[in-house]
């Protein structure tokens, strides 16, 4: 076969592609489970953070998964026919030492569900946790955003997340959602939280999708009796 002939060229290129394709498949098989566990751990860490569990920053994905499985139960509830199911994470008091495996579970401390929408630069995804009364915020956490560092990206800082803790889901008139006010001002309504200075678009977006997501959750909670067990 001539080296510069078309047959050689085709055979050679196909052979090289097959060899590297197999090598990549092998490495993918080798790492897939670990990558999946890491991705799951990131999400579980945020769910646990929103539910108020204290996690070490350097906790490994294995530790996070073990503790999550021991303390949190995921439940799926059907919504509109053909639509995606609503996943609610039910957090319970930790009564065993983390990592012991099947630790006994205490009473329910809160319910968490996914929240998300379009931010200023891209999608924002997070988790909102409510107290068992389903009227008070237990915590909030964001695990994905593309907002401006130093401005909109502040949604993932402790001060912004902490501002939600203990606030009510409804204002005095009963409307669902949060009111954002200038940071540091004394709240006048039970559903007021501090806004991020200079990130009006991000704040508006968070306000809008949280109201939407909470409304949908509360409706599903009424239908399926979440929080009444």
């Amino acid at each position: 076969m001539k080296k510069h002939g078309p047959v050689y060229m085709w055979c050679y290129t196909v052979a090289v592609a097959v060899v590297f394709g197999f090598a990549l498949s092998f490495v993918n098989q080798l790492t897939a489970a670990k990558i999946k566990a890491n991705r799951q751990a990131v999400m579980y860490r945020e769910i646990m953070r929103a539910l108020g569990y204290v996690l070490r920053d350097d906790a490994t994905s294995g530790e996070v998964l073990a503790r999550f499985n021991a303390a949190v139960t995921a439940r799926e509830y059907a919504r509109a026919p053909g639509g995606p199911a609503l996943v609610v994470w039910e957090g319970r008091e930790e009564t065993g030492v983390p990592g012991e495996g099947a630790a006994p579970r205490g009473k329910v401390i809160g319910y968490a569900f996914r929240v998300g929408g379009v931010g200023f630069w891209g999608p924002i995804e997070g988790v909102l946790a409510l107290e068992p009364d389903l009227a008070t915020v237990r915590g909030i956490s964001f695990f994905k955003d593309e907002e401006t560092p130093g401005l909109g990206h502040e949604i993932n800082t402790d001060w912004f997340r902490d501002a939600f803790k203990g606030t009510k889901l409804r204002n005095a008139e009963g409307a669902v959602g949060f009111e954002f006010t200038a940071r540091g001002k004394e709240p006048k309504a039970p559903n007021e939280v501090d806004a991020i200075t200079g990130a009006t678009e991000t704040t508006n977006s968070v306000r809008a999708f949280l109201a939407r997501n909470i409304e949908a959750f509360l409706e599903a909670a009424r239908t399926h009796g979440i929080g009444t067990r």
Binding site: V27, K34, I35, N38
Partner: peptide
């Protein structure tokens, strides 16, 4: 060759330095 090596690095980073 370059793309394959980059994907390998990417996969290992995802697995061990997430």
């Amino acid at each position: 060759i370059i793309a394959s090596l980059v994907i390998v690095v990417h996969l290992f980073l995802g697995a061990y330095m997430f």
